[in-house]
Nucleic acid binder design. Structure first.
Lengths: 224, 224
DNA sequence: ATTCGCTCTGAATAAGTGTTCAGTTCTTAT
DNA sequence: ATAAGAACTGAACACTTATTCAGAGCGAAT
């Protein structure tokens, strides 16, 4: 035996894998999923096209991992924001506006992860990604229901609907187009958060208070 | 001049065009947009592949017309339901539940029209299709606002969000899967309609009444 | 019946990209 | 220094479908 994987090599391999994923993410953020093509991604990652296949069995796997990664980040942000909130209702508000802000700060990436047509089948990964976030929102709704702040309801359905509303309103093709203006962006996030909270049964006056509480703290995310 | 388009020929040409569109629609309803391929559609329409191109310049045009057609039907149904309602709030409720029922009665087709990945670019047509419906909903919201039934709000944003919520909850990948059961279907339509009405600010108790009013009349659509 | 021109056919073509693989380069251990 | 194994390269390949087009078929007027 004259060759052995030394620690250094293992590290380099891992770094390459990350580089490829990062390149894919960058491509997606710039040009959507359509821009995630093996050859360009390989160039971005400073490897040859064939090398990509030593790390990912197929393009579908590469994109699936990309989706999973982005989704993990978003879920973590949502949890962080919600856990920092003082009560179940503001946790829900924080979760919702975090999704909104997150999605808005990377519109193309979000659209790519969520719904943009891709030539390979990444349905499973997309479903998993959505379900993770939806489950998180559903459990926050449930907590608010248990606390007596919301009427009893099908929380899974509600969570799904809320996410659909956020996505369509913020990154869908009918989304307002001047969301680069920070003021308008904030207003829009507030508006959709308010809409979402009312949808699950938060009374209007109370909702307005929660929206302000929720949106202000996460504003910093936009800069990140 | 030894050849002239006689009335009979004109009629036959129009019939063929319709047959091709109908074949495309059938394919989409059965297998989603992925099944709308020139060769299979041609077979369904009893013509050769090349003939399709005598009626539609490209696959993109064919699909765009398909989207427009389906969208026209849906818009007409929504208007009919809303116009038949006694007041602005119930018109809104009727419009929303009509969209819900309509979309549910042809899930695959709806998904194809709305969001399923397609290999050609039909973005423009999809945007137009959504905007038509969204505008209709927005104007119904506006009417309810003017009547003092709803708080002032960005009606365009609200309409977009509502449609997103309906679509995601009913035909998106996280949609409940046992919607073939009529009881469960009705409950789900009621739940999302209630959610949507509350989102735009209808008070809970009033919303429940509107939902019942709205859903019952359009139930017949499911059979159609 | 014949001719002109439109319509239809369907096999061949085109084009874009994911994937492969034979050869090259690099890394480790002796 | 050298051998053996692993990783990398990138041009060639494969595959899928939309699209084309030369020739066959058909309808209308004379």
């Amino acid at each position: 035996m004259v060759y052995r994987r030394t620690h250094q090599v293992v590290k380099r391999l891992a770094a390459r894998r990350s580089a490829i994923l990062a390149a894919a993410r960058e491509a997606a953020a710039e040009g959507g999923m359509a821009a995630v093509q093996i050859a360009p991604v390989a160039v971005k990652a400073n490897v040859a096209a064939g090398t990509v296949y030593r790390y990912f069995p197929s393009k579908a796997d590469l994109i699936s991992e990309l989706i999973a990664e982005v989704s993990r980040d978003e879920l973590a942000a949502v949890r962080r924001a919600a856990d920092a909130a003082p009560g179940p209702s503001s946790a829900l508000a924080a979760a919702i506006s975090t999704v909104a802000v997150h999605v808005l700060s990377q519109r193309k990436l979000a659209w790519g992860i969520l719904a943009e047509p891709v030539d390979v089948d990444v349905t499973a990964s997309r479903i998993a990604s959505r379900r993770e976030i939806a489950d998180e929102i559903a459990s926050r709704i449930e907590a608010a229901v248990r606390a007596g702040h919301l009427p009893a309801q099908d929380t899974q359905l509600a969570a799904t609907a809320l996410l659909g509303a956020l996505h369509e309103a913020l990154v869908g093709p009918l989304a307002p187009d001047n969301l680069d203006d920070p003021v308008r962006l904030r207003d829009t996030v507030q508006a959709v958060t308010l809409l979402a909270l009312r949808a699950v049964g938060v009374m209007d006056a109370r909702a307005r208070g929660l929206v302000v509480q929720a949106v202000l703290p996460v504003k910093t995310l936009v800069g990140a």
